[in-house]
Design a protein around this nucleic acid. Sequence first.
DNA 1: TGTACATCAGTGAACGCGCGTTCACTGATGTAC
DNA 2: TGTACATCAGTGAACGCGCGTTCACTGATGTAC
Lengths: 229, 229
Amino acid sequence: MDSVHIALQMSVTTRNSVPTAPPAARSTYRHGDLRRALLDAGIELARQGGPDAVVLREATRRAGVAPNAAYRHFANRQDLLAAVRAAAVAAVAQAMEAEMAGVPTGGTPTEQAHARVRAVGAGYMRFAHAETGLFRTAFGGQFSVEQDPDPAMGGLTGLNPFEHLSAALDDLVKAGALPAERRPGAEYLAWSTVHGMALLSIDGPLRGTPGDMQQLLGQRLLDMVERGL
Amino acid sequence: MDSVHIALQMSVTTRNSVPTAPPAARSTYRHGDLRRALLDAGIELARQGGPDAVVLREATRRAGVAPNAAYRHFANRQDLLAAVRAAAVAAVAQAMEAEMAGVPTGGTPTEQAHARVRAVGAGYMRFAHAETGLFRTAFGGQFSVEQDPDPAMGGLTGLNPFEHLSAALDDLVKAGALPAERRPGAEYLAWSTVHGMALLSIDGPLRGTPGDMQQLLGQRLLDMVERGL
DNA sequence: TGTACATCAGTGAACGCGCGTTCACTGATGTAC
DNA sequence: TGTACATCAGTGAACGCGCGTTCACTGATGTAC
């Protein structure tokens, strides 16, 4: 979980950013980096309340700026939300990367490949649990991630979550652990599975279930996918 | 698809209802069955626009009644929405029942049991596709269906969707097609899978995909579950 | 190096919106005698 | 069978809300000469 959080911080703060101006009681007339400040505020809102909580006026309030100032940097509310969404998707990608970084390097290529697929899925579910609001922002409403990939949605490796999954499945084929004729469309089968469990854990009947219980169910789910694919 | 639609109509109109008063230009001061009219209007709104479209004022408008008249029959907007949700969940149950009714009666108990599980899953996904707005209302936001079952959420058999799934899995065990030690929690694995695909088809990357393609993917998904459980 | 000026980031005030909900009411219904 | 009355379903008007967005503006910045 902490790795998830750290990954997120990195995506939010470290990436391509001029150092942010002091957030409280700006003394200068110009803000310095209002776009970044609004985006950060939007991300924080999304984190706490999901996409619907990304409210233009609240973001400007937090940035200490008049409501309409936002229109210098975003075309409208949708535009801000899209930027927040991209950051949220990128954070998912980083959660996957963090999970993959923990995969032991030993073992046969087949074992490695399986471990990577599992890491991708586990990262996805773990993120949903640890950063519910952002997960909802990324994948809760309408979304598409696969074609015309937006670089802003990539993690540190530049790959977005869908691309991570695809790559892992390709490896599975290369390692001979997945028959090539079953490869096409397999992303959607695997993704469905993990996506469904994430949502059941967040919104559905698994909401109250303790974390380690969910962890366990998640593992069984991944077993099922591994066996069933 | 048509079976889904018919099932829905039944849940909406036929069940436990006094015949609805003529919807246009009421002449009497009293409405006759305003509660039912508001519920029907709410269901129609949900069907077209999901849960957020269930707007109190719009429902009263459609019923030809002053906005505050709704408060004679529902405590508030939430209360109306909950009633709509129950109807939507019941409609899902009926979609499953319609699908199960199509299962051929021949075959071994094992084949039968497998076919029932598949029918439950297929009904769920088919409903999501055919009645997107209602599906979102039933299972799009926060929901729980399993404990303290609300009879309003049952289909014609009285079972709600979760109970249908549970029963089908129990049968699988009885038929010897699922080891008993794997039974606990299996609902959540199966449900996750199908739930995820439903949402990916509605909101996600599979949105544009033609129906028969989705049908095919759905079948592959069910294959995977069958093999993996 | 100094000054005039264009640029454009942020301001202040205001708008229209539709919503959920509350108030004191009115008029139809059905029940008690 | 007829009348008085309690009940309560639906009315009409109004409220406060926070939102997104537009307008004409002001004041700091950096560039051209």
